[in-house]
């Protein structure tokens, strides 16, 4: 197993935000983690990258335990991430922001700059290297964070609500880059999302969270026809069926 979470329970002040969550998948896939708002998706995602404390259970990455390790150590093992609120580093230029990611594995400045440039070109931000992040729009910031995450040369990339805050035409465009990441760089993707349509068309495997528990998993078609999932999404609207 590439990433394996065993019976992960996360507690906030006596309340279980995640209860016995089991998630596991193989290398090279695009995996979706979906669920309604407040289902504990972000809680789980932050536990994987080391920001939330896991109360009980274990998380393994490539058969190595990463439970409750420091975030930077997890990153160096090959897990990288983008955040829901793409703020990046507001006062930095785009190029330097991406370079922060490149410095994760490359100590030399020149090589890091080359890597950063490569990633900026990859996400299609060429020409904006010297622009301050705070001057960029949301779509470009999301791409900037994606570039920074890719610059750490991950094997697994977690995308937290990558499509939130974008207009539909931009969603289509960024989807193109997500597919490109998977196909050209061979990076395994874990997409945390509540826009079902996107996830269903993209993913090889889907996990559905509700109230902190996994209620369904499998291929998109299986999940879309699962009565539990349909119930969780308020009586099965056309969104799910359309996937």
């Amino acid at each position: 197993m590439f990433l394996k979470a065993e019976n992960v329970t996360i507690t906030f002040g006596g309340v279980n935000a995640n209860q016995n969550v089991n998630v596991s998948f193989e290398k090279g896939q695009i995996v979706g983690l979906i669920g309604p708002n407040g289902a504990g998706k972000s809680t789980f995602f932050k536990a994987v990258i080391g920001f939330n404390r896991v109360a009980s259970g274990h998380i393994y990455f490539k058969d190595e335990e990463i439970t409750n390790q420091e975030p930077y150590k997890i990153c160096r093992k090959g897990i990288s991430t983008t955040f829901q609120k793409a703020q990046a580093f507001p006062d930095m230029t785009l190029e330097e922001s991406v370079r922060v990611g490149a410095y994760c594995r490359i100590k030399n400045k020149k090589e890091a700059m080359a890597k950063a440039q490569e990633m900026i070109n990859f996400v299609g931000l060429t020409g904006k290297e010297k622009a301050k992040i705070s001057k960029l729009n949301m779509y470009d910031r999301k791409k900037a964070e994606l570039a920074a995450a890719l610059a750490t040369q991950p094997e697994l990339l977690l995308l937290d609500e990558l499509f939130a805050g974008l207009v539909p035409s931009e969603v289509e465009l960024i989807l193109k880059y997500v597919k490109k990441v998977s196909e050209e760089l061979g990076i395994t993707l874990l997409i945390v999302e509540h826009v079902l349509r996107v996830v269903m068309s993209l993913c090889d495997q889907v996990f559905v969270l509700e109230n902190g528990q996994i209620i369904a998993s499998g291929s998109p078609e299986e999940v879309a026809n699962n009565p539990e999932v349909i119930r969780a999404y308020l009586g099965g609207d056309s969104n799910v069926a359309a996937g």
Partner: peptide
């Protein structure tokens, strides 16, 4: 302008993102 400076500013601006990009706060 060196690596150290980039890391310092990254920590000031957004420590969470910096940590998830592999810098030891």
């Amino acid at each position: 302008s060196s690596r150290i400076g980039t890391m310092f500013v990254a920590l000031k601006e957004n420590p969470q993102l910096a940590a998830s990009l592999g810098s030891d706060i």
